[in-house]
Design a protein around this nucleic acid. Structure first.
Length: 231
DNA sequence: ATCTCGATAGTCT
DNA sequence: GACTATCGAGATC
């Protein structure tokens, strides 16, 4: 199986899926500022390894949050909830909100600074069956050919939004603080060879979603012409 | 396509 | 007691 096949077939064979991905991104990679890191994470691969199997997706939408501005949980200083944001970079900051949803961030910047990158959407690549079950969505009719448009609709229904992708990937507070630079369980691989890191001309910057302050900052990052966004 | 609204519980004032 | 880095359903255009 080629790396492309492993990434697009939705195969649940863990060994084949993992072989397709590079080693986890390094601690140094995460140490850069959130606003620089956020676009660098586009096209990278979010991976969750559990006993049930592998779930993976290509990151398509991110947002930067830093302690300098009030939309960030770290703005008012360190608390029990936001503590991992102030810890070393390269860890997962996963919090619970609206009484029913989780959001997943990658902690960035030097230790002691409260900042992180919110992962808002991915294109699901591996473990689609598990994701469907986790999201409580019906599986597409067996044997039905999945048109490109239908594939995108499915991908967005599964992982188009921070709450959706956490539910699809099975991410909750028990994974808060998990080291993203080590396997298992939750980690991020560099982009696949065909995609590569997003080139500057393909990156779109826009205001962050769902906040009331800091809407003047263009700290939401998506890929030009990529349909796998949250809205 | 775009809108409004309600759900629901943890966090902080 | 107010607010929330959201989502889905239902109404309306």
């Amino acid at each position: 199986m080629t790396s492309m096949e492993a990434r697009t077939s939705g195969a649940t064979d863990p060994a084949a899926a993992l072989e397709a991905f590079g080693a986890p991104l390094s601690r140094d990679f995460y140490r850069q500022d959130a606003v620089q890191l956020a676009p660098m994470l586009l096209n990278c691969i979010l991976v969750h390894e559990t006993a049930e199997g592998i779930r993976a997706g290509r990151i398509t939408e991110t947002e930067a949050y830093t302690q300098d501005e009030p939309a960030c949980h770290a703005f008012r200083g360190r608390t029990l909830r936001n503590a991992v944001m102030f810890g070393p970079p390269g860890h997962a900051y996963i919090y619970f909100t609206y009484g029913m949803h989780h959001c997943m961030n990658a902690v960035s910047g030097p230790e002691g600074r409260g900042e992180a990158v919110l992962i808002r959407a991915v294109e699901p690549l591996v473990g689609l069956e598990q994701m469907l079950r986790a999201r409580g969505l019906p599986a597409p009719a067996p044997g039905a050919a999945l048109t490109p448009a239908a594939r995108v609709r499915l991908g967005r229904a599964l992982c188009g939004g921070p709450g959706r992708l956490c539910q699809a990937f099975g991410l909750d507070r028990t994974l808060n603080g998990d080291d993203l630079t080590r396997r298992p369980r939750l980690w991020i691989a560099p982009p696949g060879v065909s995609a590569g890191f997003a080139r500057p001309e393909s990156i779109v910057a826009s205001p962050r979603i769902g906040i009331s302050a800091g809407t003047d900052l263009l700290w939401r990052f998506t890929l030009r012409d990529d349909p796998y966004t949250s809205r």
